[in-house]
Design a protein around this nucleic acid. Structure first.
Lengths: 234, 234
DNA sequence: ATCCCTTCAATAATCGATTATTAGTGTTAT
DNA sequence: ATAACACTAATAATCGATTATTGAAGGGAT
């Protein structure tokens, strides 16, 4: 018998499609699948122990977020971003985020300031690379990084703009996951510190300039690199 | 009887979910359902003569585009935008589109100029209201209107930014559909003409200013109005 | 009469099986 | 030997039916 238990206490009261969606989303972002890999509903259904409909629904959502491509009658696949596509994403961020940052600096209240400080503190104290682990950024750092950038912009107070940021961030991270190899020579920490300083000093011009530079550097770091194989294992 | 039949005339070989998705999308945008209305998979499936899975998949896509809300375990519904939400959408457009327009003016080539002229011509020659029809903008005018605004921005050459525009335009149109009643006193034609003129004259400052004004006027036109019942019967 | 508990119908969510399309494999005619 | 065609697995897309959840209606107990 399935418990009609009293709501709250039990943790698992979520739609299956939601769980599967989250799992799939994270797996793609984490790089569990290589770009171009087919996302086969049958395999996924078996792995997750759910029906095709659930997997299919999740895949459609994932496609909507730009984390997968859909080829009519040929199924779903992990998107393979071209360098061109990546540059377009980076340019879009350079176009929109500095403007949002200006709004944020103009409107942010004391609570926003506090959250910026907190987010920067967490970011600065989180190691970007786990020694033993793979060669990529740690999950914790990636989360702290996103949180810092988002918090900076949250002062603008406009959910629509923040949704746009979220969307571009996701695309950006996915592209980075597959383009970037660790570049020890690039250290974003000073840039983040200057972002925090200028933002809290309410110096919109300086902050916007720093952010633009930061985004440009990131884009350059991903493009200006020797060719490398798209091959992946693990 | 399974269809998939020789779809009569056209060589159209399209997935059912695509057709249903398009139909649903258009129906919501056209205002066939009132805000808050439940979108019941069973009813829709029967109407369209397809299975639940297909309708469900379409609904998930529609939710992804912001054209429907999903209430866990309580189904789907047409979103009911608050005035606050609408203002946020309008502000987001005012924040992003002028910047895109500047890029467009700076980068657009001769072909872009030609397409701007063509789009404006079509918009200017399309009657906004069909005399006999309902009290709302004609479908043809709505399409021409969108096309003009999008073409203006297409010179920027960045698909990511244009996707953002598309997303915001959809939200904007949906809000307008349910907020706006015909306001004969507001005539956008002169503003559109000035937009075309300043853009083709490559006067980025003037064009951005005109666009900002245009968007502000539109937002005001939708907010500054007497209360009206959300009730609808169709 | 009000509140709480049970029962019940509507429908959301999920499943297992069916049909349709694609890409590959092998065959045959030139 | 090659190119067009038939055949065949693999799997994408769809369907019909089952299970689970919700909100409302009814039935005592205080």
């Amino acid at each position: 018998m399935t418990q009609t238990a009293h709501t709250s206490t039990s943790p698992g009261k979520q739609m299956l499609s939601e769980q599967v969606y989250t799992h799939l989303r994270d797996a793609i972002m984490r790089g569990d699948y290589a770009p171009g890999d087919a996302l086969k509903p049958q395999s996924l259904a078996k792995e997750q122990g759910v029906s095709l409909a659930v997997v299919r629904e999740s895949l459609v959502r994932v496609v909507g977020e730009g984390l997968a491509d859909r080829l009519p009658n040929r199924g779903f696949a992990v998107p393979a971003f071209s360098d061109r596509r990546w540059q377009e994403i980076a340019e879009a961020r350079r176009t929109i985020e500095p403007v949002m940052l200006r709004m944020s600096i103009e409107r942010g209240d004391v609570d926003w300031e506090a959250r910026v400080r907190a987010a920067h503190h967490r970011l600065a104290r989180t190691p970007a690379y786990v020694p033993g682990e793979g060669e990529y950024y740690s999950d914790a750092w990636a989360a702290a990084h996103r949180d810092f950038h988002r918090t900076l912009l949250e002062g603008c107070g406009n959910p629509v703009l923040l949704e746009t940021f979220d969307r571009m961030w996701i695309a950006s991270e996915l592209a980075r996951r597959w383009s970037a190899h660790r570049r020890p020579e690039r250290d974003g920490a000073p840039e983040h510190r200057r972002l925090e300083e200028t933002a809290l000093a309410r110096d919109a011009d300086a902050a916007a300039e720093v952010l633009t530079q930061h985004l440009t550097m990131t884009a350059v770091a991903l493009t200006d690199r020797p060719h490398h194989e798209p091959s992946v294992d693990a």
